[in-house]
Design a binder for these strands. Structure first.
Lengths: 138, 138
DNA sequence: TATTGTTATACTCTATAACTATA
DNA sequence: TATAGTTATAGAGTATAACAATA
């Protein structure tokens, strides 16, 4: 661990590369990056409120609104008033939204497999595993 | 490699965490993030032109200028006209700049060691090694 | 005329503050 | 009065275009 770059520099570089590689895949499915992030956050279950959804994707709630407008117009999500408290809007994936995000993820997984291809299997396995661990810890 | 997050999402998350962790260290030394990036790029040798330095840190040349102004005012770098072509401005680290960037890196290395502490040594070694490999490939 | 560095302008992204509707 | 969502405004960050000096 003597002569290497800062972790932050390496992570930043790889983030840019992955974003650039994901963009054409998402665009082919008619999605922007944040659309995909939001759809992905909804996969595990509906968001009880938009504020919680915004927190889950680490964005401001005001910036979520045009994204949801776009997704709703494309019939990928629904916004329904919570009967218990009509101020809340429950955001859910539609079937179309669910299958679209799955298709995007599949394309991205293929791109990632190609990207990692030069790394021997065991090292790759460890790398991905530690990456998940660390990302979950922050 | 079945049930995991996209690489891009994990890298982005870790980038944010590292930037947040580096900022107080740099601030303690009176530097902003981009100051540190530029000083680091100059460590391996003077930049023959500002345009090349801008390309090395992957920023626009116009955005480099206020950074260099600040660093020059702080006596951390010098800008001298290239005698061979007086349009070029050669940017070099001063001794003060060199020792300051070294001090920052030391602080960042300590932070990183703490951050990686929970990962067993062999896995950590492989992770950092693959990370360097991949970052160098993009 | 072309190029380096600089300055000025426009554009995008993000955050903050007002507005509405429900409670 | 307080809160969820929305809209409007302001600020920061970034990119593009014009400018001055040198080749």
């Amino acid at each position: 661990m003597t002569q290497r770059h800062d972790l932050g520099a390496s992570f930043a570089r790889l983030t840019r590369a992955m974003v650039a590689a994901e963009e054409p895949i998402l665009r082919a499915h008619g999605l922007e990056m944040w659309d995909y992030v939001v759809l992905g956050a909804l996969e595990s279950g509906a968001a009880p409120t938009q504020a919680e959804l915004a927190a889950a994707v680490r964005r401001d709630k005001t910036r979520l609104i045009p994204i949801l407008d776009r997704l709703e117009a494309g019939l990928l999500v629904t916004r329904t008033a919570d009967p218990a408290d009509r101020r809340n809007r429950v955001v859910s994936l539609t079937e179309a939204g669910r299958s679209l995000v799955a298709a995007c993820r599949e394309g991205i997984r293929e791109m990632e497999a190609e990207f990692l291809r030069s790394v021997p299997a065991e090292r790759r396995r460890i790398f991905v595993s530690v990456l998940e661990e660390l990302a979950a810890s922050v």
